[in-house]
Design a protein around this nucleic acid. Sequence first.
DNA 1: GTGAAAGCGCTAACAC
DNA 2: GTGTTAGCGCTTTCAC
Lengths: 340, 340
Amino acid sequence: MTDTAPRPTLEAVAARAGVSRATASRVVNGGDGVREPLVERVRRAVEELGYVPNQAARSLVTRRHDAIAVVVAEPETRVFADPFFALQLRGISKELTAHDNQLVLLLTEGRDDHARVGRYLAGGHVDGALVFSLHLDDPLPGLIQRAGVPTVFGGRPGWSDGLRDVVYVDSDNRGGARDAVRHLVGLGRTRVAHITGALDQTSAVDRLEGFKDVMGDAGSRLVVHGDFTPAGGERAMRELLDRCPDVDAVFAANDLTAAGALRVLRERGRRVPEDVAVIGFDDMQPVAEQTDPPLTTVRQDIEEMGRLMARLLLHGDDELPRGTPAGVVLPTTMVHRASA
Amino acid sequence: MTDTAPRPTLEAVAARAGVSRATASRVVNGGDGVREPLVERVRRAVEELGYVPNQAARSLVTRRHDAIAVVVAEPETRVFADPFFALQLRGISKELTAHDNQLVLLLTEGRDDHARVGRYLAGGHVDGALVFSLHLDDPLPGLIQRAGVPTVFGGRPGWSDGLRDVVYVDSDNRGGARDAVRHLVGLGRTRVAHITGALDQTSAVDRLEGFKDVMGDAGSRLVVHGDFTPAGGERAMRELLDRCPDVDAVFAANDLTAAGALRVLRERGRRVPEDVAVIGFDDMQPVAEQTDPPLTTVRQDIEEMGRLMARLLLHGDDELPRGTPAGVVLPTTMVHRASA
DNA sequence: GTGAAAGCGCTAACAC
DNA sequence: GTGTTAGCGCTTTCAC
C-alpha cells in the first residue's frame, strides 16, 4: 500500500493561479461573480494539478455531504431471490450520479442492525435516506423519524398508528391486481383464485385488495396464502387444487409465486392456459419469459421507482403535487404472454 | 425538512464531563490511557447528550474515512439478471459492518462512467475499493492503479500486459469445471459438450480451460459459445443439436445457460438426464432448484467471496499467504440434483 | 470583484 | 494521565 503523493489543496491551486484561496474556491464551486480571466486561470491550475476537493473539509463547513443512504431491510433474504433490489438500485444510482451524490448502502439483517442504522442516520453522515422492504412491525421508521433525516420510502409503509407524514413511492398494486383479475374474468373464467404474497408487506395486502375489488368477498373462498417465493407458490397451488379441483384461473402475487404454481399445475396434468389461466405480477424478465408457458403478468417499472425516489429526496417537494398525501403511485401495465 | 437541533460536539461532552476535549476524544476512541473514573464520566456525558462524532471533522485530520467503495461495472446489465451481485454485496456488507466501515456503491454503465469513478477514487474519499465485473479490455484497472487506492478485485483480472501486482479473489473456476466434466465422463458419457460463458470474462475462459483439461483438444469440436444468459444457452443448445445430434452430455458455463439448454432439450424431445446429462455452474438456488429437472451444478460460495474480499482489503496482507501471487482462489463443490 | 481571516469539529503532538 | 495548542482543507462573512 504505497503512500500516495499528498493531494494538492485549494491553497496550491490558488498559488498557482495567482489568486486568493477564496477566489479559487468560488471558481471551483461554479465561478459566479468571478471575472472571466481569473476563472480561466484557476480552471487551468485545477487541471494541471489534478485538484480534487477534499470532501471532508467541505462537509465540515457546509454540513452537507452529497451522499444519501439506501437502507435495505432484508430479514427474509427474499431481496436476494429476485432482481428487484438490483433494479431499484440501478435507478437510484443513475439519479444520484446525475446530481453528484454518493450512494451509501446499508444492508440490515434482523433487529440488531436497526440500532446501528439508526445511529448512523442520526450521526448526520448523509443528507437523506431511501428506505426499503419495511414490514408492518418494523421499528426502523421510528428510529429514522427520530434521527431527523429526510427520507423517502420504497413501497407504501404499513404502520397504522395515525398515518405519519411520510413520502413514499409505490406501484399501483391494487389497480394492477384489478387489471389482472378482470382480464381473467374477461377470458370467461369463473373460478378465479388468488395466491397472496407475504401479507406483512403492503404490496401483498394491496394486491389482495385488488383481487377482492373484482371478485367480491365471495372470492375469498379461493384465496390462499403464499409468501412471494416459488416454494410458497407450489404449496399454495397444491392446497388450491385439493380444495377446489375445478379452479380455472390463478392470479399470483408475483412472478416467482406464479412460477411455482405453474410447476404444480404441470405436475398435476393441468394445461395452461387451457385448463387454468395464470397471471403473475412484476414482469421479472428472467422469470416471466422462461416459465413454461411464458407468463402473462402485471408489469411495474422498478427502475423508475428507484429513480423517482431519489429525485423526490434530492429535490424535495418540488416534485410532489401540492396538497396530496405524500405518496406517489406509479401505474402498472399488463404484459400478455401465453399463460393467460 | 425540519432543521434538526445542532448536534452536540466533543466540546460539549468534555464540558459536561468536566474534562478537556482531548480526554473526551481519547475516551470516545477507545479510552486507552485514561483513568477509569474519567472514562466513566465521559461515557455518561456521551450517553446523555446523544453525542455522535462528526465523521467529516475526524476524517479531515486522520485522513481515514472508514468507508470503502464497491465498484460494479455492468455494461451487460447481466449483473441484474441473477442474484450473484446481491450475494456478493451481502458478504461484503457483513464484513464491513463488523469493522465499522461504510459501503459506498458505485455502479457504472459504459465508458463515460469510468472517468467519474476514477475521479472519485482519486479524490481520496474512501480508504479502498472492491472492484467487480471487469472485462478483458476494461480501462478501469488502469484508472484505479493511478488513483493509488488499495484495491481488491472480484474475479481474476484478465489483462495481459505484464501481470501487475493485484489482489483478487476468485472461485476455482477451472477446477470446478474439471469436476463437472469428470462427473459426466464418469457417467459413461462420451460426447460431452460445453456451452461457454461470455469469453471476455476470465471466469468463462477458466471454465472452458477446465473442460479442455479433461476432454483434451479433441473436445473442442463440441464447444459452442454462449454468453451466460438463458437465451444464449438456448441458441447454443440448438446449434449443438444441429451440429451433433448424438451429444449425450452438456456442461454449461452457468446455471442460467443450463436452464436455457434444458428448455431446448425438452422442446426437442430429449430426456434429461437419460438422453443428455446436463451440469451447470454457480448453484444459483432460485434457478437450479426450479429447472425441470432440477440442476446438478458446481457450487461457488459467492457470499464468502464477498466477505473475503472485504477482509483482504481491510486487513491488508495479513491474510495473504506470504510469497504467493496475490490471488485467493476459493474451492467449489458439486451439488447433485437430477440433471446429471 | 477580490482578498483576509475566522472558524467548522476533531485528533495528535507536546507540555505539564 | 491530562490539558493546551496547533492545525487538517475548506467556505464564508466582511472589508476593501
